[in-house]
């Protein structure tokens, strides 16, 4: 399979703090890859670096054969890289519809309508609330809106940062079902999760981050069965 995203030797600093130590990993086409690890292990930092919000002092990031290490954040959406940030970060003072329109910002106006219909079909609750201000939505609905908004750009690779955070178990299940559906519909997914159990269940492959380093990697199944993982992340 062709490699879609390749991150090589990322070293990221927050001022004096060395947050990522030579992180390397790859995502192949049509995969679900999970980055798991504890709070502060560098999962979100990794995604932010891929999106150009943070910058690595060394190494490179290649997406679809193109070097995007120094590409500005706002140029990535049109290349097919979408990032659903931690904490959803929907535009709380804008309507659901406007949020979705912003997701398609880099696309020509004529193509938006179809994508809007697609998103409303996948998330019927958003359709019912399309003229509502996003700030009035529940946490689960906001997560759906954040995902729908990212889908509006027709991404090749969808990066999700903690989509299950703060949601009731039934909603977590729903969100993971949606991720699986998106994957089946042909979207490649890079998933960052603290909920390792859920993430490993759906991931083809996974990387474990520990204090800014990749400590383990393997298929979702291998990692789910590994003793070290069970002890550290799965409460076994």
């Amino acid at each position: 399979m062709a490699i879609m995203l390749q991150a090589e030797d990322l070293n990221v600093y927050y001022g004096q703090i060395h947050a990522l130590h030579g992180v390397s990993f790859s995502v192949e086409e049509d995969e679900i890859v999970a980055l798991i690890g504890a709070n502060g292990a560098g999962k979100s930092t990794t995604l932010k670096t891929l999106s150009g919000i943070l910058h690595s002092k060394t190494g490179s990031i290649t997406f679809m054969g193109e070097n995007i290490t120094r590409t500005e954040t706002h140029k990535l959406a049109s290349k097919g890289l979408a990032h659903v940030p931690e904490g959803r970060r929907v535009f709380l003072q804008m309507t659901v519809r406007e949020n979705l329109e912003m997701g398609a910002y880099s696309r020509p106006k004529g193509e938006i309508k179809d994508s809007l219909d697609d998103v409303f079909q996948r998330f019927p609750r958003l359709k019912h609330r399309k003229d509502q201000i996003a700030g009035t939505l529940s946490g689960g609905e906001q997560q759906m809106l954040a995902m729908g908004r990212a889908l509006m750009s027709k991404p090749k690779l969808l990066m999700l940062d903690e989509p299950s955070m703060g949601l009731a178990p039934i909603l977590v299940q729903q969100i993971f079902d949606i991720i699986k559906e998106l994957h089946e519909a042909g979207t490649t997914i890079l998933l960052v999760e603290q909920n390792a159990e859920m993430a490993l269940k759906i991931a083809n492959r996974a990387y474990v981050l520990e204090s800014g380093r990749v400590s383990l990697s393997g298929t979702g199944k291998e990692l789910a069965e590994s003793d070290a993982i069970k002890k550290a992340y799965l409460g076994g």
């Binding site: 500005e72 954040t73 959406a77 535009f91 910002y105």
Partner: peptide
Amino acid sequence: DAAELMGI
């Protein structure tokens, strides 16, 4: 940041 992620 979110606006940048949208391509703005």
